[in-house]
Structure formats: structure tokens, C-alpha cells
Write a protein that binds this DNA or RNA. Structure first.
Length: 272
DNA sequence: ATGCAGGCGGGCT
DNA sequence: AGCCCGCCTGCA
């Protein structure tokens, strides 16, 4: 099927923006995204995109996933002239979207992410999926779903450790236990105000400010959440004299944070 | 080879 | 409340 997207939308930038760890970029310029049991292949073609799913699935699953209901081009215009770094970052990051991903997957993935590089995170997530997820076969490949809490519940600590989770194993076990017991109802959390959602997520071991903000932003679409990782920390120190510029951007903070992050990793030399 | 990579928990002040 | 240290593991 062929679709058109009029707003800012750049697959390569989205794939490299560090918010999703299971996206695959093929040599012919096409991309693969996975959420739940749904797998999407798409590539840019003549004024739009060729997508592997039917219209119904695109509307129901992938439109929300790519946050197509929001106009990202408008965000470019709200940055004041005085914020020169953000102007630059927003220009460079134009086309990135904040993906609306599965809360459970984000919870586990961002617990894993601490003290790991992006390739290392990807590796651990793939190992988890291969060992505990379910196989899904497409015309192009066989891949594995991200394991549910139920699927991880039976895992021995040693099996989790074999997925290169290291000291995070008890954190993942705590997340599994809290979700299975109903103590942490991830679907119900969607109705909570931002601050309450944030605090509730932090009751899981291994979830601190940064990880909780990532989950708020990438799973619950809380655009005011602006996670401060080492790169954003460097940006604040180096470009803003230690003053965090993101809170002042309110409900645009999360999107701008993502632009700022993308700019930093694309120009590492400027921050090292 | 020390230090670091998209932090966090626990103990201390 | 804020600071410091240790921590699985892979990599340069």
C-alpha cells in the first residue's frame, strides 16, 4: 500500500534517534518496525511511503505509533531566536517523531539501558526476545516479539543474566512481579496526570528520574517529559551554562529534547 | 589498560 | 536534599 505523510517525517532520523531499539534499517533504504505482534516494512517512494500493511492496520496501529495526529513542523516555530542551540538542533532533527511504544517494552528496555551503549541495549533486547518472545514470520524474515511479563515470569535469574542484563536482573524481576501482581497496572497508568505517572513508575526498582521520564515520553506520549541522560547533561553544561532549558518549553520539551539529543550524538566531537 | 557507555540504589552528611 | 560509590559487561 502507498500512503502520504504531509508533516515532518524522516525514517532514518527516527531509527537513529535512540528511542526504539528494535528498528532495522535495510540496505535498500527500507525500514522495519515492530510493536506487539505487528511488523511493518516501509520505505520512501514517489512523494510518499510504500508500507507493508493494509490501510486498516496503518490507521489503527502505525498512525498512533508514529504520532501522526500531531503536527511536528509547528514545533520548529516556537523556539526563540535567542536559543541558538535549540534552533540548530531542531533544524537538524527535523523529521524525528516521538514514537508511541508499548509501556511494558519501554519499562524493561529503559531499565536495561542504564550504563549501556545503544548497540549493547539492542543486543540485550534481541536476546530477551529470542529466548522469551514468540516467533513471527514475515515474507522477509522470522523475528521475535518482545516478551510479555507473563513470558518473563518463568525465567530463572541465570537465564536473564545470559541476556546480558548484568546487575539489572533483580530490577527486571521486580518489574515482572509488580506487573503480574497487579500492583503496577501499566494500562491504567495512562489516565494518571504526568507527575503521578512519573512517581508511580519510580516505585519499580531500577527506575529513577531518567528511566521514568523515558517511559513517560516514549510509552505514554507525555511530551512535557524531557529525560536528562549523559548527552543532555553535556548539552546543558556546555550550551546552557548549567541551566536546564527544557522545563521552559512546557509541552514541547520532550520533542525538543529528542532533537537536542539527536544533534549531540550526530556531532559527538562537539561534546567530547 | 583504565575509563566510560543514554543510571540507580544505598549509605552518608 | 545532595554527594559519593559500587555495580554487570563490552569496548576502545
Amino acid at each position: 500500500m502507498h500512503i502520504s505523510i504531509t508533516d515532518d517525517f524522516d525514517l532514518a532520523k527516527i531509527a537513529r534517534s535512540g528511542q526504539c531499539f528494535r528498528v532495522k534499517e535495510f540496505e535498500d533504504g527500507s525500514f522495519r518496525f515492530v510493536t506487539g505482534r505487528e511488523v511493518l516494512y516501509l520505505r520512501q517512494s514517489a512523494g510518499g511511503f510504500a508500507v507493508s500493511c493494509p490501510e486498516e492496520t496503518w490507521q489503527r496501529v502505525w498512525g498512533p505509533y508514529f504520532d501522526l495526529g500531531r503536527t511536528y513542523s509547528a514545533v520548529q516555530k516556537i523556539i526563540p531566536e535567542s536559543d541558538t542551540y535549540m534552533q540548530l538542533a531542531a533544524q537538524e532533527g527535523r523529521g524525528i517523531r516521538i514514537l508511541r511504544q508499548d509501556p511494558w517494552e519501554m519499562l524493561v528496555t529503559f531499565i536495561i539501558s542504564q550504563r549501556k551503549s545503544i548497540p549493547a541495549i539492542q543486543q540485550a533486547v534481541e536476546l530477551l526476545a529470542e529466548r522469551f518472545g514468540e516467533a513471527v514470520t514475515t515474507p522477509y524474515e522470522t523475528l521475535y516479539t518482545f516478551p510479555t511479563a507473563e513470558q518473563l515470569a518463568g525465567a530463572q535469574a541465570g537465564e536473564l543474566a545470559a541476556c546480558k542484563l548484568g546487575y539489572r536482573v533483580p530490577y527486571i524481576q521486580d518489574a515482572v512481579a509488580k506487573v503480574l501482581s497487579g500492583q503496577m497496572d501499566l494500562a491504567a497508568l495512562a489516565t494518571l496526570p504526568d507527575a503521578e505517572l512519573f512517581e508511580k513508575l519510580k516505585t519499580i526498582r531500577g527506575v529513577g528520574d531518567k528511566v521514568a521520564n523515558c517511559i513517560c515520553l516514549f510509552a505514554y506520549g507525555r511530551m512535557g517529559a524531557a529525560p536528562i541522560d549523559t548527552w543532555i547533561h553535556k548539552i546543558i553544561a556546555r550550551e546552557y551554562g548549567g541551566h536546564n532549558p527544557f522545563p521552559a518549553y512546557g509541552e514541547h520539551a520532550g520533542i525538543l529534547q529528542q532533537f537536542a539529543f539527536y544533534y549531540a550524538i550526530a556531532h559527538k566531537e562537539r561534546f567530547t
